[in-house]
Design a protein around this nucleic acid. Sequence first.
DNA 1: ATGAAAGCGCTAACAT
DNA 2: ATGTTAGCGCTTTCAT
Lengths: 329, 329
Amino acid sequence: MAATIRDVARAAGVSPSTVSRALALSELVTATTRDRVLQAARELGYEPNRAARGLVTGRTHNLGLIVPDLANPFFPGIVKGVQARAHDADHAVFVADTDEDAVAEVKLARTLAKQVDGMILCSTRMGDAELRALAADIAVVVMNRRVDGIAAINVDNVGGMRQAAGHLAALGHRRIGYAAGPSNAWASQQRLDGLRGATAGLGVELVELGNFAPVFASGVAAADLALAAGTTAVIGYNDVVALGLLSRLSGRGVAVPDRVSVVGCDDIALSAMCSPSLTTIALPQERAGRAAVDLLLSLLNDRAAGGGVALELETQLVVRASTGPAPDG
Amino acid sequence: MAATIRDVARAAGVSPSTVSRALALSELVTATTRDRVLQAARELGYEPNRAARGLVTGRTHNLGLIVPDLANPFFPGIVKGVQARAHDADHAVFVADTDEDAVAEVKLARTLAKQVDGMILCSTRMGDAELRALAADIAVVVMNRRVDGIAAINVDNVGGMRQAAGHLAALGHRRIGYAAGPSNAWASQQRLDGLRGATAGLGVELVELGNFAPVFASGVAAADLALAAGTTAVIGYNDVVALGLLSRLSGRGVAVPDRVSVVGCDDIALSAMCSPSLTTIALPQERAGRAAVDLLLSLLNDRAAGGGVALELETQLVVRASTGPAPDG
DNA sequence: ATGAAAGCGCTAACAT
DNA sequence: ATGTTAGCGCTTTCAT
C-alpha cells in the first residue's frame, strides 16, 4: 500500500494536519517541523492521494483535452503543449479522441466533465448550443473556434491565408484553387474568408473546389478538380490534404512546382520531410496548447475572468519547394 | 452543485445505501424501490462522483498510458486503440508524453500511478529494475518490451524483419544496410536480431550502420553511410527514419528504387502518402492498444493472472514503390 | 505553531 | 430488504 498522510505524520511525530500544512508550504509551520515532515515524506515516498484531496477541495487537478483525431499530425503538437504546461502546473490530462464524430464528442465531453476541473476542446465539431451548455457546467476553453462568451485560443487563419495568397500572387499565379475542409470546422470557414478577402484585393481569381474531410484522400480528389479548373496553384485546407494533392499531381505526371504550385496549412513535421517539401502556413501548435492551459487555469482561479477572452496567435508562411513561379500563360 | 447520493436518497425516500445498491443493480433491492430510486436519480441528473467511489473501492476506473513521443506517428494509433477499448470498459485514460526522456518517464509514471488502476507503458526507455519496482506497486502492461514477470504486448519484430530480408533477397539484393534505433529501445534489438538471423540464412550481407534516434535526421545521416558502404538496399529502424533515407537519397540524386531500395517499419499513415511510397512492415497499432487494455483489465480483475503473460501480434510486410530489383552488379 | 475533529461523496460491513 | 455506522485520505475549521 502507498503511504498515507498518517504514515508521514507518525514518522515525523506530528499530526496529519501539520503534514498537510507543511506540504502546502504554508507559513503556519516552523521551518524545522516542515523540514522534518518533508524528510519523512521523502523517505516514505509519500504522494498525496489526489482523489481524496479533490473530494474536500473540490478541485481534481485534472484537465480534459478533446481532439478530433490524433492521427492527424496537427494535434499531437497541441497535446504536447497542453501536457507540458499542465504538468508544470501539477495537473494531469485526460486525452480523448472523438474520431471526428460530433455526437461521440458531446458524450465524451459530458463524461469527462465529471472528473476534471476544466476542459480544452480542440477544433470541436460540437454545435454552438451544446458548447454553451457545456461551458455553463464546467470551465471550457476552445481552440480553433469562436463562440461568444467562451474563452478561446485561435490562430490567425486570415493572416496566414493572406500571406499564402500574397506569396502565390507574387509568383504570378492568377487562378488559385482552394480545397476547403469540413463545413462544420470553424477554421475552414476562417481560412476561406481570409482567402476570399486576400484574393479579391490582389485581383486573383479564387476557385473553391468544395468541402473535404481533412484527410489524404481528399487531396487526391481535389487535385483532379484543380487541374480541370485550370488553376496553376492549389491551397489545401491542411497539410495532409496538401500531401494528397502532391501525391496525385505527381501520379498524373504534373510537375510540382513547375506546372502547379501547392500550399498546405499547419506545418506538420512531415511537410519538411516529403519531396518536394511543402510550402505551408506554420501554426504554433505547442504554443497554442500551452496558451490554452494558461487560459483555462486563469479561468479556474478567477471566476470573474469570464469566458469572453479570446487570444489569437500569429501564423507564419513557410516557403519550401512546392511553390514556384506560375508557368507562362 | 451536482446532486449527491443523499439528494437522491431524500427524493426517493430511502437511505443512501439503498440508492447505492439500486444503482449497482444489486438484487438486494425490491423492483419497486429500485424504480423509485432510478427515477429520482434521473430527475436530479445524478451521476456518482468517481473520485469518492474510488476512495472507498480502491478502483479509480482510470488508466494511464505513457508514450515516448506523440509526434512520432506510430504512437497515435496505439493511443486510439487504447482509448477505444478503455472507453468501452468505462475507463478514462490519462495520456502522458515523455519526450523520449527516461528520467522524466519514471517521474511521470510514479505520479500517474497514484491516480490510476493500472498503466500501459509503450516502448518504455525505463530500466528493468525501475520497471519491476513500478510493477510491484501497480498493474503494468508494457508494449514493445519484454521483461520477466511483466505482462507484455509485443509485435513480431523478428518475423517482420525476416519478411523484409526475404523480400529484398528475392529482388537480388546481396548487401543490405540497417539503420538501427536507440540502443535502449528493446524493439531495436529485436529487429537487429531478426535481421541478423534472416540475412545469415539467406546468404545476404548485413551492414549495421549504427544506432540512431528514431527521427528523420537520422535517416538523412544514415543514407550517406549506406551509400558509402555500397549497399543496394537499406532498412530503417522505423518509417520516420526511412523517410529521412528517402529524402537524402533523392537529394543526392540516387534513384529509389532503381539504384537503392528502402524499407521502413511501422506503416505509419504517411508511408503510403509520400513518393515514392514506402515499403514497410505494418504493425497492428490499434489492435495492440486494444489488446493492452484487455490484458491490463484482466490483470486488474484477477490478481492470479500474474504478470507473466506476453502476447505477440503478427506483423506484415507491405510492399510499395520504394523497393525494386537490385541494380545489375 | 500545532492538534483534534469534522466532513467531502461514496460503499461495505454490520445491524435490523 | 433496508437502515445505520464506519471509514477511504485528505483539508480545514476550530481549539489550544
